[in-house]
Design a protein around this nucleic acid. Structure first.
Length: 104
DNA sequence: GGGGTGACCCAGT
DNA sequence: TACTGGGCCACCC
């Protein structure tokens, strides 16, 4: 935390913290939501932000659009998600069942 | 001010 | 089913 996250990065982290246990959001969904709220961002940018500042939020609740887990952290993410009751489909998260969207 | 770097996404092969 | 190429955009040097 020697370096505070940028304004956009904070928006991403703030949203990720709202994701309830047992649910997940995809990078693309986060990007779309923040695009309405802040007017900027894209799936690619969200991924970059998570790679840099994801350590302070439940990063394991953020997956790709097909339920794929972040490279290099697949085992750690899988363990935490299973502990929260997130349904899996083979190696990936079952998005159809675990996908979440903020009410407001 | 210009260019490179990604924990991405989609469509086509 | 798995791989490739092009588009995408904030951040860092």
């Amino acid at each position: 935390m020697t370096v505070p996250p940028s304004a956009y990065a904070e928006s991403v982290l703030d949203l990720v913290e709202l994701i309830p246990p047992g649910r997940v959001m995809s990078y693309g969904m986060i990007a779309e939501y923040l695009r309405d709220r802040t007017g900027r961002g894209s799936a690619r940018t969200v991924g970059t932000v998570m790679a840099r500042y994801g350590g302070g939020v439940p990063w394991h609740r953020v997956v790709s659009s097909v339920g794929r887990l972040p490279p290099g952290h697949e085992d750690a993410a899988r363990g935490r998600l299973e502990a929260e009751g997130v349904p899996f489909r083979g190696r990936n998260v079952d998005l159809a069942a675990a996908q979440w969207w903020p009410d407001a």
